[in-house]
Design a protein around this nucleic acid. Sequence first.
DNA 1: ACTGAAAGACACAGACT
DNA 2: AGTCTGTGTCTTTCAGT
Lengths: 168, 168
Amino acid sequence: MKRSTKTEESAAPATAPELDAKDREILRHLQEHARISVTEIAARVHLSPTPVHERIRRLEESGVIRQYATLLDAQKLDQGLMVICYVSLKQHDKKAGLKFIQAINGLNEVVECYSISGEFDFMLKVRAKDMAGFYDFHVNRLSQVENLGHVQSVFVMGVIKDTHKIIF
Amino acid sequence: MKRSTKTEESAAPATAPELDAKDREILRHLQEHARISVTEIAARVHLSPTPVHERIRRLEESGVIRQYATLLDAQKLDQGLMVICYVSLKQHDKKAGLKFIQAINGLNEVVECYSISGEFDFMLKVRAKDMAGFYDFHVNRLSQVENLGHVQSVFVMGVIKDTHKIIF
DNA sequence: ACTGAAAGACACAGACT
DNA sequence: AGTCTGTGTCTTTCAGT
């Protein structure tokens, strides 16, 4: 194995990133085309492959690059339903919160989870095949989570924009 | 340029995917490690590189593979604030909706946008540097959008889980 | 659909500027 | 921190099965 694998590697050390203009250019290319070659990135940023290679290595190590991911079409994989679930907990102490976080990490249907301001404690982005699949998740998996208070669901009817692109 | 670039290529034709077990295995590897070599995927799925290469090409063409992306750390790029904005429109006719969608696509701070059920019409995921950055976006960019009714914002205080992983 | 071979491109490391 | 050079590996194509 020679080419970079990334992910599941060591946790990102908090070493100061200190990104210069070239680093940012490289990141902008990689952000949208993770599989292009170092040689091509080098050509686009007007550098030779060697320093680009070294810069990418540093960006991976410092954790600026989190993961090289392939984004798939959920519809074509029969996982076309997306639901936003708002969840409140019964108890809000630290221990109860950690247990909830653990439980959420065990639910594969939950692709994102955020701690939020407002009436509810958490927001979950859930993927399912269809309404029946979501119902099954709701009743048999989410509702089984300990310390769960209220759940309120908002259904996604259409995707207007779905990007991961960070502007910087 | 020889290696696959993906993205911005032709729109996905609606040709039936018809994925077999090997295709799904390949997708599962690519989903989390977009930069691993075809050779290594081949080894992991017990096939030679040639058919794996051809399968990946078909998956790209059919649109099952949407994009090869590099996921970056928003905090380290000084874009650590995430806000969920709920938006309702004043007018709901088709033309007004299309204009809104166009406007949203022009706002780089909006990384995701969904048409949703419930009280509001759309949900936006917005990224900004900090509160001042978000305020600037809210007042000078979002609020300038034509036909905008109410906006309600929920602030993300912590990221519990942030994945793109579709289970299939 | 897969195997095997073969050419060119690439990753990666080393010495040098 | 960059360029240049070399080696081994990989991608990609094309033959055959």
